[in-house]
Design a binder for these strands. Sequence first.
DNA 1: TTTT
DNA 2: TTTT
Lengths: 158, 158, 158, 158
Amino acid sequence: MIGNVGADPEIRRTQDGRPIANLRIATSETWRDRNSGERREKTEWHNVVVFNEGLCKVVEQYVKKGAKLYIEGALQTRKWQDQTGNDRYTTEVVLQGFNSTLTMLDGRGEGGGERRGGGDFGAAPNYDDYGSRPASGGGGSSRSSGSLSRDMDDDIPF
Amino acid sequence: MIGNVGADPEIRRTQDGRPIANLRIATSETWRDRNSGERREKTEWHNVVVFNEGLCKVVEQYVKKGAKLYIEGALQTRKWQDQTGNDRYTTEVVLQGFNSTLTMLDGRGEGGGERRGGGDFGAAPNYDDYGSRPASGGGGSSRSSGSLSRDMDDDIPF
Amino acid sequence: MIGNVGADPEIRRTQDGRPIANLRIATSETWRDRNSGERREKTEWHNVVVFNEGLCKVVEQYVKKGAKLYIEGALQTRKWQDQTGNDRYTTEVVLQGFNSTLTMLDGRGEGGGERRGGGDFGAAPNYDDYGSRPASGGGGSSRSSGSLSRDMDDDIPF
Amino acid sequence: MIGNVGADPEIRRTQDGRPIANLRIATSETWRDRNSGERREKTEWHNVVVFNEGLCKVVEQYVKKGAKLYIEGALQTRKWQDQTGNDRYTTEVVLQGFNSTLTMLDGRGEGGGERRGGGDFGAAPNYDDYGSRPASGGGGSSRSSGSLSRDMDDDIPF
DNA sequence: TTTT
DNA sequence: TTTT
């Protein structure tokens, strides 16, 4: 999904500290009416929930209202009860890091930390290297926290 | 693939009149070097060949140098001979309408004809309704230019 | 989305004859519980609506209960009223031919008509050439049903 | 890309121990010739390079010749010199964990370790949870090897 | 060199 | 040769 963020993201935390980001994403279609020739537009709103910790950081730091995002995740339908006890269902796009991606498509959101773009979703800074951060494990080496990805300019000797 | 068009597209035609568009697409990654902290960038260039007639029209009318595109197609490797007769291979992204998509991601390229966005690739005019034009079959119907897709606001009675 | 079809598809027609296919698709995840070590599974069910005429034909002819499909479409949420007049919302994946794809991932569903696979969704017959049928343009050619796509072995002279 | 693995994967290691997996993936199209009515087939072969450590483990443990895979990665063209010193170019699909996914589409490859499927690429065990292992961050929790993803049945209290 |  |  490619769309625009409708409001600044909400970030909450679970009791044991894991972050969860909620996003509202708008996708719009425009077309010209066959009969009247008028320009028409329709906007669809989507709920996106980010459980992936790396992606949550990205969202927290860079994603603001109006940002254009590429989103890829799983479709999940949650069951809940309304006030009168009736079953209700809400469908969300869930980013849990499995087949999940979030890439910023506009140039906003430049920032501090070490990060790295990638994939074929370029032409704008990408903040989706979450997958590349190894379990690190503390340990003071300067590359210990390094990415398991090849440096762009690394020589990889076998 | 999401990237930027490096030059105005070339449109050629086969002897029997079918259009073929060639695009150069750049995808860029930026990251901050782990050691030096410097900002780094790498750009990858891709050859994209569009055989799909509807998509060729879109390319011809709206895609210019600098446009940002979402591209989805098949990966194909062509064999050819260089001047010395050696085998060479070139890999291209081929849009033949099967699992193929091209969507404009910036607002440029507004224009005349009837067209219609769609999918979840919104937030900018989409010109990818090629798939929706039925084989028409002549017959001078008032829907000759019609899409087989439902109008966004159509009432669809069963 | 890659999943399995839960029941034979329902095909309806609009009053003016356009087909609409409804599919139930299951996507399943399996994992081993971190604590108990037991194998767990969760299945998610999705509603898929196909408006694209070509894809509807594919669905009608080849898609049966149990088929494994690759599906790509737009996410849309419909509002409706339940019996007590309360607003309800249902989210569906809509295939209208824009950025929409349906590919069979198992070998079932072999059949009569001329068709053509494609894309990088291979290794099984593909029935997604709907996008490739040009507006034909009369001419009574023997290629009336022809694809605008290049023949695999065509010589394309410029 | 959805395709079949042509040979058992090769796994190499860099001098500093990072794994790199190389895969050959075949995607096939079948169609019926418009004129002769004969069944035709064309196979395309792709080079896939996996730098992502989690995905390398998946490849090492589960991916064998014949496996059907869903692959998503970046397209990269490498320059190299042949024996006569001429420049040559090879295009590969690179999985570095950014917008990269690898999912097994057939039921093979069941195994030992804790793992977890996900995304909408279900209906078969998925082994793509690499992205979900957090930097752990010490803390001596019993969930040290835990996923940052929500358990399917976890209660997530805020 | 895969698969259906 | 693009873009940010």
